[in-house]
Amino acid sequence: MPCPSALSSEPFPEVAAPLEEVCAPTPRDRAAALMFALSRRPETDGRPVLFAASRVWLGENGRPYGPGLAGAALILTPVSTAAEGLWVLEQALRSGAVSLALGAVDGASLAQTRRLEFAAKEGGSVGLMLPRAPEGLTAARRRWRIETALSAPDAEDPRAPGRTRLAAGMTRGRGERPGVWMMEQDDETHRLRLADRLAGFGPPSIAGTGAATGLAA
């Protein structure tokens, strides 16, 4: 986890690009990566969110808990192959019926991701890929590396976990400088926001990495 001095002083790109990519470096970071991915949905967009994932992925990581997504319905679409997942994402994005379409799909080519980017622009939606690891060149404007972080201190009980935190690192941005931002979950809006740069930092710990993740086994 980055120390405060390693955090970027550049403005955080609040508005998502038509197509972005989010990766989790370790299995324990996948819930944080999914939380970050869901936060890329425009706040005022009430259209549903679609999540396409293979049955193997769902078996390993659990199913997202739909009622935990504030402000929008969740459409969960299990798929059998990467090709099927890419087709589902493209059709959903092009339809304009969803605000955000997530795909836990590996091995997408540059040409396939370009189709997703064009479909997202056509439908006025946001497309987001969740591969297990960054692989090759894609049409995604931004590539994010998401790591879990120690939760924020609880102001009323130092023994209790506070707000969920994660470190969002942009490792590639088209026309943008890479950087790392510390994010935390807002208790009222249930969305991510920039955390205090000076408070609550420390070494990463599996036992202390978080609160609500939105995943249910």
Score class of each variant (00 low, 15 high):
Pro2Lys: 10
Cys3Met: 11
Pro4Ile: 02
Pro11Val: 09
Pro11Gln: 06
Pro11Leu: 04
Val15Trp: 00
Leu19Asp: 01
Glu20Asn: 04
Glu20Met: 04
Ala24Glu: 02
Pro27Ser: 07
Arg28Cys: 09
Asp29Lys: 09
Asp29Met: 07
Asp29Phe: 04
Arg30Met: 11
Ala32Gly: 12
Leu38Ser: 13
Leu38Gln: 07
Arg41Met: 06
Glu43Trp: 06
Thr44Ser: 09
Gly46Trp: 03
Arg47Val: 00
Pro48Leu: 03
Val56Trp: 14
Gly59Cys: 07
Glu60Met: 14
Gly66Trp: 06
Gly68Asp: 03
Gly68Arg: 02
Gly71Ile: 00
Gly71Cys: 00
Ala72Trp: 00
Ala72Cys: 01
Ile75Ser: 15
Ile75His: 13
Ile75Gly: 15
Leu76Met: 05
Leu76Pro: 14
Thr77Ala: 13
Ala83Pro: 08
Gly85Cys: 13
Gly85Pro: 10
Leu86Ser: 14
Leu86Glu: 09
Val88Tyr: 11
Glu90Tyr: 07
Glu90Val: 06
Ala92Cys: 10
Leu93Lys: 10
Gly107Val: 00
Leu110Gly: 01
Ala111Phe: 05
Ala111Met: 11
Arg114Asp: 07
Arg115Val: 05
Leu116His: 02
Glu117Gly: 00
Phe118Asn: 13
Phe118Tyr: 10
Ala119Cys: 03
Gly123Ala: 11
Gly123Trp: 07
Ser125Asp: 06
Val126Leu: 09
Leu128Cys: 04
Leu128Ala: 05
Glu135Gly: 06
Leu137Ile: 12
Leu137Asn: 13
Thr138Met: 11
Arg141Gly: 13
Arg142Ala: 09
Arg145Gln: 13
Glu147Asn: 10
Ala149Val: 07
Leu150Pro: 08
Ala152Ser: 14
Pro153Thr: 03
Asp154Val: 12
Asp157Arg: 13
Pro158Lys: 14
Pro161Met: 13
Pro161Tyr: 11
Gly162Glu: 09
Thr164Val: 07
Leu166His: 10
Ala168Glu: 00
Ala168Asp: 04
Met170Ala: 01
Arg172Ala: 08
Arg172Met: 05
Gly173Thr: 05
Gly175Leu: 00
Glu176Gln: 12
Gly179Arg: 03
Gly179Lys: 06
Trp181Thr: 07
Met183Tyr: 04
Glu184Phe: 05
Gln185Ala: 14
Asp186Glu: 01
Arg191Pro: 02
Leu192Thr: 05
Ala195Pro: 07
Leu198Gln: 12
Ala199Asp: 04
Gly200Gln: 06
Phe201Trp: 01
Gly202Asn: 05
Ser205Phe: 13
Gly208Ala: 12
Thr209Leu: 15
Thr209Ile: 11
Gly210His: 09
Ala212Arg: 12
Ala212Trp: 14
Ala217Arg: 15
Ala217Asp: 12
